[in-house]
Design a protein around this nucleic acid. Structure first.
Lengths: 188, 188
DNA sequence: TCATAACCGGAGGATTATCGTCCGTATAAA
DNA sequence: TTTATACGGACGATAATCCTCCGGTTATGA
């Protein structure tokens, strides 16, 4: 594969990810191509279908999630509080809400085995890392990985511009309250 | 106006509200008419434009919000805790998230004065009621009405079906955590 | 430097979704 | 019973998105 072709392919996935994060799924493929600085034909040459593109975006996000989780696990023993806080910040930046929207809109007919496996793997990692977090009393003992991730996803769904303008940083605040709520539940 | 015409008009607003709540704005008007059990022509006869319909939905929701806020204010002195909890439950049922989505998608060109005024009025009511809540130490002293309502709106945005199936009652749980977080902030 | 295989862009026809009008029919009200 | 008011849904118009096709460009290796 030619080097420039690889670059273009990656640019397309990056652009798609950004657009999904801004709008929450159901983006026109023309718009993705334009955002990637690429002709529409190049997009279709690289991705057989919309589903194939969404799949790559999903895998990219899940891979980032794994990185973050690994980092959490690494620093959890030394300083659980800061590690946990940093983890949550990274999760917010992952646009998990956009991922959920994209998967549901564009892969409504069932996820591919590839994505399913990646999802399961990521959740298992989170589940493991959560053990340490539970021990540090930062979250309730019965908090499950799935519900935690879904909660973050809901809180970080792409918002209408009007909302962002009316109350900036509201997502960060919301997530902060959720984390505070989890800690309160853990210590009560 | 003929009595059956009034019934149909109301049915249309109800159906639109329900569909907006399920899908989050940008519903085909044909679908609204069908859900209301009404011909598409009847919808266009009652509402000059999509905007006019969305506006009525918005006013209906804001009116319900006012009712809930009045009820909160009434019971706040006697039993602040339960009153606050009941209020939050009612807010979740209002589909404020769907309202935000609908307003932003369909009334992107600026809200009508009617809706703006209703919005301002509702927020003022909430702001007043919050005084009692703050005194009861259920929320931080500096919590503003707007950010509280926006937070509830974000948490109650319509979710993809897959999310609801993967983690049922997650919205309630999330809102519960936010409330717990607010209380924790208030007493720390 | 050159030959060539790999790759690109974007115009444009096809497809699909939604809109909103029109008119023959039905029904509430007096 | 009469009639003004209101209804339904088919249908042509409009708009958005899809995705193929082909003349032209560029990376790569000798």
């Amino acid at each position: 594969m030619r080097a420039d072709a690889v670059r273009r392919r990656e640019a397309i996935v990056r652009a798609a990810r950004r657009l999904f994060a801004e709008a929450g799924g159901s983006i026109a493929l023309d718009a993705v191509a334009e955002a990637a600085g690429v002709g529409i034909a190049t997009l279709y040459r690289n991705f057989e279908s919309r589903e194939a593109l969404v799949e790559q975006v999903a895998l990219a996000i899940l891979s980032d999630l794994d990185d973050a989780t690994a980092e959490l696990a690494e620093h959890l023993r030394d300083e659980p509080g800061p590690a946990w806080q940093a983890y949550v910040v990274r999760l917010v930046e992952l646009d998990l809400g956009a991922l959920a929207a994209a998967l549901s809109v564009d892969l409504a007919g069932g996820l591919s085995v590839l994505v399913q496996d990646a999802q399961t793997h990521s959740l298992t990692q989170v589940e493991e890392a959560l053990n340490g977090v539970r021990e540090a009393r930062l979250v309730p003992a019965d908090l499950e990985a799935l519900e935690f991730i879904v909660a973050i996803g809901i809180a970080t769904r792409p918002q209408p511009l009007a909302v962002t303008r009316a109350a900036p940083h509201m997502v960060e605040r919301l997530v902060g309250l959720v984390i505070a709520g989890l800690r309160a539940e853990a210590t009560s």
